[in-house]
């Protein structure tokens, strides 16, 4: 301890070593704060840039979602499905249970079975 004290109390060109060490430490701390701030600033800029990108993407998503909703609006789908696919609301008579389908198939395979009703293929309204 005495040795360290002696070293620190030594003077270089009239300035004590302990003062020089303290000064150097102070400069080091200032520099480290400066470096940290500069690093944080750079990261902040990156975050800001990413946030801007997210906002732009969100804007784009909102726009695409609105466009999708516009194109798939019910009246538009109804018009297109009627015009190009001859689709329409499903009639109750076109709904059958799986058991009934099986029964219909069995009836169709019988020799004297009546011809099946000429109903258009069922279309699901859920497609609208």
């Amino acid at each position: 301890m005495i040795g360290l004290h002696t070293v620190l109390m030594r003077k270089v060109r009239g300035v004590r070593v302990v003062d020089l060490a303290g000064g150097a430490f102070l400069v080091l701390m200032v520099l480290s704060v400066y470096a940290s701030k500069a690093g944080a600033g750079a990261e902040g800029a990156k975050i800001a840039d990413t946030t801007r990108q997210i906002a732009a993407e969100e804007q784009q998503v909102r726009l695409l979602r609105a466009e999708h909703a516009y194109l798939t609006r019910p009246d538009n789908l109804r018009r297109l499905s009627t015009q190009y696919l001859n689709m329409g609301p499903i009639a109750a008579s076109h709904e059958v249970t799986p058991e009934a389908l099986l029964q219909a198939r069995q009836l169709a395979t019988l020799p004297a079975a009546a011809p099946p009703a000429t109903a258009p293929p069922a279309v699901a309204e859920g497609a609208r």
């Binding site: 709904e95 389908l101 309204e125």
Partner: peptide
Amino acid sequence: PFLGVKRAPAALAAPLPTAAAASP
């Protein structure tokens, strides 16, 4: 169908009824 209300099985029992018979 959108509301999840199912038809009573009796209404669907007949295989492939004609559309005119059940027009509401």
